Amino acid sequence: MTAFSCIIPAYNEGPRIAAVLECVLRQEELSEVIVVDDGSRDDTAAIAESYRSAHPQLRVLRQSVNAGKTAAVARGIAEAQGAHLVFLDSDLLGLTPEALGALLAPVAAGRADVSLSLRRNAPRLWHAIGLDYISGERVLPRAMLADRLEELHRLPQFGLEVFMNRIWIAEQARIAVVPWPEVDSPMKHDKLGTWRAGLRADARMMGDIFRTIGPVQALRQIRHMRGLRVRHDVGALPGTKAAPTR
């Protein structure tokens, strides 16, 4: 049986992380769940730790300062024991055990080497091309990243996903794109309170991405990743269709 370690980086997600953990901790395929609190100023870590007594597979790691998502994930990878890693954002809305199970299934069954989500509120363009190349919800072998922790620490805060894409393409990994028709990622302006703050946050994220690979390389990643997609069964989720084959 494949052992999955789930890593959940979190920063000031007190209003949202409980719903994610309620789902994740019901997933029997996960051998361990690691929440990495990235120097939150709210009660994120305390909420996560409140689940520990009933769920021994849960660990909560606290970063002393806010170092960014990539650093938090790197900390989780260094602590993880599973042969495969599951990355989940801590602010997901509408996550269910069925959706999470669908993300795990293609890799667990050997039909794909890696998988990533396509959330309901992902940009329309990503739905049109059948791929969210910066999705934060992924499953992959731990070996793909375990020896690259120093490289991860040199990345910008939001350079992680496109860095992983580069590895997947180099290794010609079979990619399962798993539609999540009932799962959303909250808009940054909703979380931060104003459109201006949300736009600034989006601009910082895109700046980190393009410092990592550049716009032309991003387009090439999308093209290559679309070619690596494999067909898989997602019939367990309402409103989904089989993913396209390469």
Rank of each mutant, 00 (worst) to 15 (best):
R75L: 14
S117Y: 08
V139N: 02
A102E: 08
S53N: 13
H55S: 14
S64I: 11
S135V: 03
L104W: 02
L149H: 00
V114H: 05
A83R: 15
R142D: 05
S115C: 08
I134E: 06
A80W: 01
I134R: 05
L131R: 03
L152C: 13
A108V: 01
N121S: 01
D132W: 03
P141V: 02
S115Y: 06
E150K: 13
E79L: 07
A143C: 10
P106C: 11
S135N: 14
L85K: 09
L92T: 09
A109D: 10
G101M: 04
R120I: 05
A80D: 00
L116D: 00
I129A: 07
A112C: 10
L93V: 15
A143W: 02
L88V: 00
A122M: 08
L61K: 13
P123C: 00
R120C: 11
A109H: 11
A54E: 15
H55N: 15
A67Y: 05
Y133N: 13
P56D: 10
G68N: 04
R111P: 00
A99S: 15
P106E: 03
L131M: 12
L95S: 06
V60M: 04
V107L: 12
D89Q: 13
N121M: 03
A67M: 02
L145Q: 02
G76D: 09
P56Q: 07
F87E: 08
G110S: 07
L125C: 02
A80H: 04
G130M: 07
L118K: 06
I77S: 09
A78P: 05
L93T: 12
L140W: 02
S90T: 01
I77G: 06
V139W: 06
V139P: 01
L149V: 10
G136W: 07
D91N: 11
A122E: 14
R62E: 12
V86H: 00
R119H: 14
H153S: 13
V86N: 01
A112V: 02
S115R: 08
R124P: 11
A80V: 09
H55C: 10
L145P: 01
L116A: 14
E151Q: 15
A99H: 11
R59A: 15
E98F: 05
T96H: 04
A67H: 09
H153W: 13
L93Y: 10
I134W: 04
N66K: 13
G76Q: 10
Q81V: 11
Q57A: 14
L103I: 10
G76W: 08
R142W: 05
V107Y: 06
L92E: 04
V65M: 07
H127A: 03
A74N: 11
T70D: 07
G110P: 04
V60F: 03
L58V: 09
N121V: 01
R148I: 05
L100T: 12
R138V: 14
L92N: 07
Q57C: 11
A109P: 00
I77K: 00
D132E: 11
